[in-house]
């Protein structure tokens, strides 16, 4: 057991950048998956709708930790040696895609139906209606809940510590193994997460309030 010095806290703060980077890459991956899920969910083809519903139910109805285990051990079994980076990003992206897809579906469906009907009446096809009429309006609605979801994503990255990815939580565990000051270390880790997440929570709340004002008639 040794005392905690300033360099130990610096070690934790430096580890936080891996948390940030992993959150960003999982957000990009999750955004791509989520876009397909959202579009599939509002598609005119029944089988696409059912496929998206099944995907959402599967990923929202099971623990993220188990999903990470399956990606990690499953890739191993298939003989693909995914590094911890790729496995963590892939697992988090597949999960985030289900949540983002469901959030964005709500935003797409919140755009009044008359908008796409007017597009049809003007002779536009599905893609231009989506791209030029529905999605730009849905995007405005999507900003606040998407920022809110980012908080969940940052918190989820902590689970990759269990499959051995070194980010903030894992760094806390490593530091604890050498210094054995669990309360101070894990509280510091919690405070760093709080400093990452709270601004996002506040921003999401502010955006939501602004949106409510804008849409009040």
């Amino acid at each position: 057991m040794r005392a905690l010095g300033p360099s130990d806290f610096l070690f934790l703060i430096e580890a936080a950048r891996w948390t940030i980077l992993l959150s960003l890459s999982a957000f990009i991956g999750g955004g791509i998956v989520g876009a397909f899920i959202a579009l599939g969910r509002v598609s005119e083809r029944k089988w696409l709708r059912w496929l998206s519903i099944g995907y959402i139910q599967l990923f929202q109805g099971t623990p993220l930790l188990l999903q990470l285990f399956l990606v990690f051990f499953g890739s191993d079994m298939l003989g693909l040696a995914l590094g911890p980076w790729v496995a963590a990003t892939l697992g988090l992206s597949l999960n985030a895609g289900a949540f983002l897809g469901e959030i964005w579906r709500g935003c797409i469906q919140a755009v009044p139906r008359a908008q796409s009907e007017a597009g049809q009446a003007l002779g536009l096809h599905y893609l231009p209606i989506m791209r030029r009429v529905v999605l730009p309006q849905a995007l405005r609605l999507a900003v606040a809940p998407t920022v809110g979801f980012l908080v969940n994503l940052v918190k989820s990255t902590s689970l990759t510590a269990i499959i051995g990815f070194v980010e903030l939580t894992r760094a806390g565990q490593q530091l604890n193994n050498t210094t054995f000051r669990p309360f101070t270390i894990y509280m510091t880790v919690a405070v760093i997460y709080f400093l990452l997440c709270w601004p996002l929570t506040l921003a999401s709340r502010k955006l939501e309030r602004r949106m409510n004002v804008a849409y009040r008639r």
Binding site: V151, K155, S156, T157, S158, L159, A161, I162, T169, G172, Y186, V189, A190, Y193, F194, C197, W198, T201
Partner: peptide
């Protein structure tokens, strides 16, 4: 609400 459950 702004810290991970694992750390809690």
């Amino acid at each position: 609400r702004n810290t991970p459950f694992l750390v809690q």
